[in-house]
Design a protein around this nucleic acid. Structure first.
Lengths: 257, 257
DNA sequence: CATATTTTCTTGTATTTTGATAATTTTAGT
DNA sequence: ACTAAAATTATCAAAATACAAGAAAATATG
């Protein structure tokens, strides 16, 4: 264990399920002497990436809240997408959650969302939560634009039930790509139906999706064209806005240098 | 530059004002050879703490969004305070922003907030933004519970206009402590008036405050007792809830070990 | 106050990091 | 598609530092 790994391994122990650890527990878990962990934890506390809680426990520190804010203010995808989510929601024919998601390693992560006030259910796609790559429209719309070796690498970790299952998956992906959008029902959350379109920007390396998620019980077939039209037009708006933000950043760097 | 510092120094270059850097710029700024920076940046990208943007630029990576979510779900202060902010807001006599803030090094940081739908202005206290320690009710309510050497250390970096200014500051702090709450007008944001009460938990090392912020123009003197009563009762509720959360965590660790 | 627990300190040794340079890959402009 | 420039990675010996293990100190607990 060397370099950043040594810090990252410790930080990644802190999860939703287990949010506080003692030095001894970390030491056990990582099979590393406690004197070493004490030193590393001290460094992380100094940088506010960890902080000490009661009873020799440590938890994630406020530095993450700080950096998260900077991302919200500066990430081109979040900046470009955030303002449109509410508008999209309001143009949908029924109550919805609207999600902007992106690739994160070989998972998918929501980075911005807007739920209409009276939408009762909750989607599993939540800001910062890692979601499966191959289930749900939100995820599939992202990978449907990825091809060749990149796609292969991405799917390397995924397991399919059998070859037939795998074939169906790829066939669906190709089909969705032709249609331009993806629709799934109950793959991630029972009782919810999702529609998603891809959002891409090769220059900025953005591989993302915009999706609207509804209660299956609210959804009627005649809604589909409207939903699709909204998603498509907003995805184009967002892509255009991303470019504009990119230009702004370029100009900023040119002026200040 | 050694240990975690070497990574932290780079990450801390990324700010609201300047959210993307090239390796060469970082190398210049930190007066460190670019070969070294390339190596470190690569490590941070691998861990998703940074990600590459267009034109050789790098920006903060999605790992921060992930960890931020875990904090929101698990930090005792955020968990305990978040659910009460809306209730507090609804019991206030006029439109308001309601803020839960805590110490972050020698600054103050908002960790949760709720703004009533028709509040027009915006407070500078925003989730993740570092704010001054000695201005504004939100900040002062935190330090008014800190005494002795801790307070001295905390204020070491602060500069006062003159000795008289300093004396007034300490006198006000002592006064507020006696009253049990803090009230300031226009210290941080012109046109806003803030009220704050401290939130503490020695066991968990929590030094925080709960505050309600209003438009000065909406505020009438007769509102003050209600505002004060609301803040006080909710701060007690939050403190009690923090203890309960603490017990839950204790139990969790006992059961799973 | 005594005891147990947590945390820091110490030290020689093993490992990692560093930085100058070279090699390679990627990008951007004809 | 070609080429020049820019960006990134690889190499390697010297320098820096992280490491492990136990001792010591500080802190929490009853």
């Amino acid at each position: 264990m060397s370099g950043f790994t040594r810090y990252n391994k410790i930080l990644n122990l802190f999860s939703e399920q287990r949010s506080s650890w003692t030095v001894l527990e970390i030491s056990d878990e990582l099979k590393t002497p406690s004197s070493t962990i004490y030193r590393i934890v001290r460094e992380l506390v100094l940088a506010e990436f960890l902080e000490s809680a009661a009873g020799a426990y440590f938890r994630l520190g406020p530095a993450f809240i700080k950096f998260n804010r900077i991302i919200n203010l500066s990430d081109p995808l979040v900046r470009a997408g955030q303002p449109f989510l509410k508008k999209l929601a309001n143009e949908n024919p029924i109550e919805s959650v609207n999600v902007l998601a992106r690739l994160y390693g070989n998972k998918v992560m929501c980075v911005a969302d807007y739920k209409t006030p009276f939408f009762k259910n909750n989607t599993s796609y939540q800001k910062g939560k890692l979601m499966p790559l191959i289930y749900g429209a939100t995820s599939r719309a992202i990978i449907m634009k990825i091809v060749g070796k990149s796609l292969e690498d991405l799917l390397k970790q995924e397991t399919f039930y059998d070859d037939n299952d795998k074939d169906t998956f790829f066939k669906n992906l190709k089909n969705d790509n032709k249609k331009g959008y993806c629709k799934t029902e109950g793959q991630v959350d029972k009782g919810l139906i999702g529609f998603a379109v891809p959002i891409n920007n090769k220059k900025l390396g953005i591989e993302a999706s915009l999706s609207s998620i509804f209660n299956s019980s609210d959804f009627l077939p005649e809604h589909e064209p409207i939903i699709y039209a909204n998603l498509t037009s907003y995805s184009l708006l967002i892509e255009r806005y991303i470019n504009q933000i990119f230009d702004d950043i370029q100009n900023y760097h040119q002026i200040s240098s």
